[in-house]
Design a protein around this nucleic acid. Sequence first.
DNA 1: CTGAAAGCGCTTACAG
DNA 2: CTGAAAGCGCTTACAG
Lengths: 335, 335
Amino acid sequence: MNTSPVTLAQVAAAAGVSPSTVSRILNGSARVDDAKRQAVETAIAQLDYQPNAMAQGLARGRTMTIGVLTQDISSPFYNEILQGVEDGLVGTGFAPIFASGHWNADEEIQRLTMLARRPVDGLIVLTGAIPDDVLTGFAERVPMVTMGHRVVRDNAVYLQLDNEHAAYQATCHLLDLGHVAIAHIAGPPHMGDSTARLAGYQRALAERNIEFNPALVVQGDFRDDSGVVAVAQLLESRQHFTALFAANDQMAIGARLGFYRRGIRIPEDVSLIGFDDLPAASFCTPPLTTVRQPVYEIGFQSASALMRLLRGEKCDPIALPLTVVVRESTQRRRY
Amino acid sequence: MNTSPVTLAQVAAAAGVSPSTVSRILNGSARVDDAKRQAVETAIAQLDYQPNAMAQGLARGRTMTIGVLTQDISSPFYNEILQGVEDGLVGTGFAPIFASGHWNADEEIQRLTMLARRPVDGLIVLTGAIPDDVLTGFAERVPMVTMGHRVVRDNAVYLQLDNEHAAYQATCHLLDLGHVAIAHIAGPPHMGDSTARLAGYQRALAERNIEFNPALVVQGDFRDDSGVVAVAQLLESRQHFTALFAANDQMAIGARLGFYRRGIRIPEDVSLIGFDDLPAASFCTPPLTTVRQPVYEIGFQSASALMRLLRGEKCDPIALPLTVVVRESTQRRRY
DNA sequence: CTGAAAGCGCTTACAG
DNA sequence: CTGAAAGCGCTTACAG
């Protein structure tokens, strides 16, 4: 029933040459007589031959797959990154294999181990709670590119996204609009991204001599619901604020719903700014002011950098810009 | 520099047994003397041995990977499906490989071919424009489960989601609220899902003796922007309507923004219902009434069914329910 | 330019 | 219960 796949040996037989020759034609690894090339090529076409990638992998010592570790493949944040990765791999013969760590360092390590034993030829690690030195350990066995982790090795490259500075700018945007009482919904405390964003927020306040009020920052977990909850907390605390900076868009969107529920208008009553620029951000009502992460670019560059690494080329850290995009959820303070 | 990975042969040497024995212990494929088992197990632990999945694949004639074809990996709709697939594969040793067809039948076929040559042990095909018979052709070589395609074969199973009926129910929900002039934003015309939803909408109208008004249905492409555009068209056409059924949530969310721009309130001025129940739907303002697709379930069931197929078990079509979830974007007609 | 041969790291009849 | 051997489908020195 299952048509067993055509092998290279069959192609060789059909074309009347040795397997070596077929292989060489396939890989362009040596000059081959034109007549034979012809014969082989028609045989390939006729038999509809597809080389077996696993056998190639075994023979060459590479697998033609790269592992991609995300926190949560179902988070909208990763979607376009993955698209970028996919596109960055088109035409290279490499296929991505995905795994999610679910915001849990142990699970991350386990998934990484699983990826490593296939084995993959390269790894892309997108943020996460896994300690940098563990990651460096993995880098010993396989080239990798990381986002949100600084691993310094010849066969590794990391993406530089200056979260602190971007958060600083986001806060400045609010400050420039006359806001003084600015609340913040922070991300998970153990993640580098969260702490950097909180730090940027604090730096902006300090720079304008606004005293940091801890009661104005509430803890979130980067998911939408936590934004709703955070707003409830903030409101119950009876702290006065006219603007809110959420450490990511999902929480900002949750917050927006929280405000809606209480009849608090955005941006008339409070200005709201997020972080990430998810596709959903521009379809919010009102469209959300936020910090744009070049997600597609992140994926694409990661894939390209990894391909370079696999070719044995050196690769400098890749700096990618984070920029505030002003839409309609922020406005000048009115009272 | 690269610690070359430990092989089974090394484990065998360390444990003083033959490779065959190690293999048998790994696979539990035969009784083995306890002392040797001990020795092997400690050797494995000590050397931190990880079997090479490619070599296993080649020897066993399977690759331990399954291909997943989506339309657009960056669409929020697929996110949770993929999570479901991932979870359905946990512990099986299989890893998913993803590819996107980008709403283009040719590209789909090409991606499928690429997946097939790795080769993958199984395929999950999620919707798409690819003709059913082409798909059936692929099913000749590899077991597969499909969503949105009816392929009938021993080694294939399809998911049954009754889009027509769900759209019928969505429309009835609007009708029950007293709406009569109901607009519809349709999906891409060549896709089965789109046409089924349009058909359900029409059937509901017919059943209540409401004449179908073609000017009330505008074409979308399942993406957010097309919802914005559709609303503009609808409004410019000066057709009267008090409710709008969008063929998916992304377009509904776009439509919601389109209304917001013109100061048209949801649900006071027009009731809005979507389709899919994306995570974003419940965080809309107001939270969106929609048809829930059990996305996680779709992914999980697809993976499980495929595993069953791979074990040689038969598998009946899997029926999954589509249900209207009423939130706050629809209300009784007021005038 | 090209073939025969060895090898990639496993698995699995085949003997014993 | 266990080892030696062949084989999975390729690639790549090694000769010529």
